[in-house]
């Protein structure tokens, strides 16, 4: 695993083997979001009591990054925001260690988001380049928020550190992907041709 930081890229110890999956995304896949090109450079796989999901790290041409969350066959494109910008009581309570109530509404930048899920997540493993170390067995508290028009957000608490990610649901077709993973027996979709 490589870790990308201001100090450069450093290699960390060998991570656990990624379990087999049929995700259509792979490291090296390229695409565009809102006219900006990106490349998939890393992934973290998380699990919780009711399943597992992938978070793919996208590196944009301008050096910016975003996460492509992949769960239940749906995709979310999220960008990190400084947590200090988020002025919401519920979100601040989560930071302090409280569990939010599911279905609770949260106002963020004047838009209403609803707490749809909150749980402890366990890092299964990671691959590629990442902005932090993601050791197997790492535990974070994760809160999902959803809006009525497909907006979404995610809050991760790791000890005293809280990260906030905000974005929207996307389809892979919207991202005009190139270099998708080839899966045996399945034709590449029209949107990747």
């Amino acid at each position: 695993m490589l870790v990308r930081s201001d100090a450069g890229i450093a290699q960390f110890g060998i991570a656990a083997v990624l379990p087999f999956d049929v995700s259509p995304v792979q490291i090296g896949m390229r695409g565009t979001d809102d006219g900006a090109s990106f490349e998939v450079i890393g992934r973290v796989r998380w699990s919780w009591t009711d399943g597992a999901w992938n978070e793919w790290l996208l590196l944009f041409e301008d050096g910016g990054t975003a996460w492509l969350g992949e769960a239940m066959g749906q995709f979310m494109l999220l960008r990190e925001r400084p947590f200090a910008e988020v002025r919401s009581r519920t979100v601040k309570d989560v930071m302090k260690g409280e569990a939010p109530k599911l279905g609770h509404d949260v106002q963020i930048d004047g838009r209403k988001l609803t707490v749809s899920d909150a749980r402890w997540a366990l890092c299964v493993t990671a691959e590629g380049e990442l902005p932090f170390t993601a050791p197997s067995g790492w535990r974070v508290y994760s809160v999902d928020l959803r809006g009525a028009a497909g907006e979404c957000a995610n809050l991760q608490r790791d000890g005293a550190r809280v990260s906030f990610y905000q974005g929207r649901y996307v389809t892979l077709a919207e991202l005009a992907p190139r270099g998708m993973r080839v899966i045996e027996g399945w034709a590449l979709p029209d949107y990747a041709a």
Partner: peptide, 14 residues
């Protein structure tokens, strides 16, 4: 080439 020579396709069924 934009897409390097593809590795063997990932198996679909386990």
């Amino acid at each position: 080439p934009e897409v390097p020579l593809a590795p063997a396709p990932a198996p679909a069924v386990r």
